[in-house]
């Protein structure tokens, strides 16, 4: 009879974390920036069909980096959570905080219990009535939940982008200025020009009515940057 070999839990968790981090580091980043009327999300994504940024509910949006099938499953689960809650109670009862907590619980369980952890990181954004009520939550592959203010980057070049934005961020930008700010951070870190067709951009904007989410077209991106 052979004994099952022993792996210390520290080692097990470390191996899993390393595995997940490696997967995430391969993917391109996403930036979210607060501006006067809402929040802008920007990603480099040449695919028109497979999105990294999506609408969750009236005031809530989702962005994911890493393995597409994994964050897509989380996006779908988030929409289900939000629609069920909004239908059972009221539309204003759907909040980023409760959704981020649910994501956190789910990802923590996946990380601890399944053979392969998710190689993803996600961002939940909620735009409030005033800039002070706007919140951004970042949920990591192991369920770690962090709330961010003003701007935030997730994915491979997270650290470089964050330090670049920290130097230059100012609050109260308009939408076009926020887009220039985010795009410029990407291009500096990547050290190359990125064409309008290669961006995926979306906003949650207070001026859009009940459903605040809207994607920006390549033309809008071009005119904002010129």
């Amino acid at each position: 009879m052979t004994l099952p070999y022993y792996v210390p839990p520290e080692q097990l968790m470390k191996d899993r974390a390393e595995f997940a981090q490696k997967g995430i580091a391969k993917g391109r980043s996403i930036i979210a920036v607060e501006y006067a009327d809402g929040v802008l999300m920007l990603a480099e994504n040449s695919s028109k069909a497979l999105n990294k940024i999506g609408e969750i509910y009236d005031r809530l949006a989702f962005a994911g980096v890493g393995k597409y099938n994994e964050f897509e499953a989380l996006r779908v689960a988030g929409i289900r959570h939000a629609d069920l809650k909004g239908y059972s109670y009221g539309r204003s009862d759907v909040s980023a905080k409760s959704l981020a907590n649910a994501y956190s619980q789910t990802l923590a369980a996946v990380f601890a219990e399944t053979v392969k952890p998710y190689e993803i990181e996600i961002l939940i954004v909620e735009v409030g009535d005033t800039p002070d009520d706007t919140v951004m939550f970042r949920v990591r592959y192991d369920g770690t939940l962090v709330d961010e203010e003003g701007f935030c980057a997730i994915g491979g070049q997270e650290d470089e982008l964050t330090s670049r934005m920290k130097e230059r961020f100012e609050s109260g930008l308009d939408r076009a200025a926020a887009l220039r700010f985010a795009a410029e951070a990407f291009e500096r870190v990547e050290d190359r020009q990125i064409g309008p067709e290669e961006w995926e951009a979306a906003v949650l904007d207070r001026t859009n009515g009940r459903r605040m989410f809207r994607r920006l077209s390549a033309d809008e991106i071009t005119s904002a940057r010129s």
Binding site: A73, L74, V76, A77, G78, R80, H81, D83, L84, Y87, S98, N101, A102, Y103, Q105, T106, A109
Partner: peptide
């Protein structure tokens, strides 16, 4: 509260993944 992850294409299940009504039904 944990989230309900989509099951993908399951030949045994007749559930329409994009239907909100089916979702309500699953949750009674």
């Amino acid at each position: 509260m944990s989230l309900e992850l989509p099951s993908g294409l399951n030949p045994q299940s007749q559930a329409q993944d994009a239907s909100f009504f089916e979702l309500l039904r699953r949750h009674d």
